[in-house]
């Protein structure tokens, strides 16, 4: 049984938890996020003929005043950053979080979910935001908690990426 620890981080209010709720197996309530600061879910994906269990550590949403809890990120095999496509600043705030996280775990496979794509009228991101230049650009996928768009693709991409990069 192959398992991967995946941490999901994002700015407060980006719809991070809603995004995955319907696609994961969960036995803990959302309350854990505001109490313990983390909630662990499980997602099974298939990479080739190898089943992979993603242990999804959904970390409490962060704002500029609070840091991501480094202890929870330790040992992660992959990261999902969640930004709100209708709030451009969340993408920018994410880069701070990203610096902090990579400081703890180093460079590991990461994907950024640009959420709320269903709200097309309010979408604020341009092509430079969605496909940033430079080697440090994290893979980005447009997602919607409402329609489910991009969610499975996010998990699939990350699972494959962690398999390609087994040594963390």
């Amino acid at each position: 049984m192959l398992q991967k620890k995946i941490c999901m981080v994002g700015v407060f209010g980006t719809g991070k938890t809603c995004l995955v709720q319907q696609y994961v197996h969960s036995i803990f309530s959302v309350k854990y996020l505001s109490t313990v600061g983390v909630k662990i879910d499980k997602k099974e994906v298939q990479v080739g003929d190898q089943p992979v269990t993603l242990m999804l550590w959904d970390l409490e949403g962060r704002d500029s005043n609070r840091d991501v809890n480094g202890s929870y990120v330790r040992g992660a095999h992959g990261l999902i950053y969640v930004a709100d496509g209708t709030r451009r600043e969340t993408v920018e705030q994410l880069s701070e979080i990203q610096d902090m996280v990579t400081g703890v775990v180093g460079e590991i496979p990461s994907v950024m979910a640009l959420n709320k794509i269903d709200l097309t009228d309010e979408w604020q991101l341009g092509s430079s935001d969605e496909n940033p230049p430079g080697p440090n650009g994290v893979h980005r996928i447009r997602t919607s908690a409402k329609t489910g768009e991009g969610v499975e693709a996010t998990f699939q991409w990350l699972a494959e990426a962690t398999m390609r990069n087994p040594v963390t």
Partner: peptide, 29 residues
């Protein structure tokens, strides 16, 4: 480090379907 479950055993009459989730939460706590 990762909180991932390496192995789990339980009493014969006990069924624990989400040992991996519990294991993760145990580390998180």
């Amino acid at each position: 480090e990762t909180g991932l479950l390496l192995e789990h055993v339980s009493a014969p009459d006990l069924s624990v379907p989400d040992a991996d989730l519990i294991s993760g939460m145990l580390t998180a706590i």
